[in-house]
């Protein structure tokens, strides 16, 4: 009797240790959804011509422009997105949930809709764009600043929601203690609040930058497509797909390698905060 009970127990323990086959199969299928397209891409890479392809004007212009615009957009997001996150986390005001919804809207909206909305608001004939243009001569569509704006619109929500979440989870007693010891508001923000949300801030920055780097729809709709001025890496890939497939594949490879390197490098260190 006792022997039988023991083997049954052991069997059950073994069963518990063995991963459920179905779950593993489905999980691997899930992984395949991500992996297979990249294998397809890699199978088309013209390895021997790669150095030559990557040194063409089209590629270097797009790479430079993508770096400049995505990093500028990230910087803009820090300057205005972090304060916005602070407002959402700390201030009580009517319609806050509506504002929060508005902030996350670009995450779910097709970027092309965002681009069209930007055009209606800030285009030459736009609601704000027209008076702005008449007053200052500033024209955002078809300009590099337009690309930065489109990138910021699409990518900043990542920073706002990450930082807002961190601020709300922060134990406010630390800030209270600092204040009671005589620290001013700015000192508390600089010495206590920002360092404590540091990991979330960095995670938000990385996500924002990565999203900005990959931005396509809002950019081509709002800022157009001109080499050296508004043609970022994703736009260059799109155009090259129809004219020179090797260039398109080479450009895609650059994007995959750069994005993957950054995401993998930062994942272990920072993403735990998410």
């Amino acid at each position: 009797m006792g022997f039988i009970a023991l083997t049954t127990e052991r069997r059950e323990a073994e069963r518990a240790r063995r991963p459920p086959v179905l779950l593993v199969v489905l999980g691997v299928l899930g992984l395949a959804v991500f992996a297979v397209p990249f294998i397809g891409l890699l199978s088309r890479v013209p390895w021997t011509d790669l150095p030559e392809l990557l040194s063409s004007d089209l590629v270097t212009d797009a790479l430079r422009l993508s770096m400049v615009t995505s990093l500028t957009a990230t910087l803009v997001a820090v300057l205005i997105g972090v304060p916005l996150a602070w407002i959402l986390a700390r201030l009580e005001f009517p319609g806050r949930s509506l504002v929060r919804g508005l902030v996350t809207l670009p995450l779910v909206l097709p970027p092309v809709v965002g681009g069209a909305a930007l055009l209606f608001a800030l285009g030459r004939r736009g609601l704000i764009g027209e008076p702005l243009n008449q007053a200052t001569g500033l024209l955002l569509p078809f300009s590099t600043s337009g690309v930065v704006l489109a990138n910021t619109f699409v990518a900043m929500p990542f920073l706002v929601i990450t930082v807002e979440g961190a601020l709300r989870n922060l134990d406010r007693r630390y800030e209270g203690a600092a204040s009671s010891l005589g620290a001013g508001q700015w000192t508390v923000l600089r010495r206590i609040t920002l360092p404590m949300i540091g990991p979330s801030l960095v995670a938000g920055l990385v996500l924002t930058w990565a999203r900005a780097l990959g931005e396509f729809g809002a950019t081509i709709t709002f800022a157009g497509n001109l080499q050296g001025r508004t043609q970022t890496l994703p736009l260059a890939v799109f155009v090259a797909l129809e004219s020179d497939r090797d260039v398109a594949v080479a450009l895609s490879l650059v994007m995959v390698v750069v994005s993957l390197a950054v995401l993998v490098a930062l994942r272990e260190r920072w993403w735990k905060a998410l």
Binding site: G123, R124, R125, G224, N225, V239
Partner: peptide, 20 residues
């Protein structure tokens, strides 16, 4: 003096229509 190369003729037309 080109300012944008649009992906297809309808995309181009839309931007002209919008006055951009």
């Amino acid at each position: 003096a080109i300012d944008t190369n649009e992906p297809d003729v309808r995309a181009l037309l839309t931007k002209i229509e919008a006055g951009e």
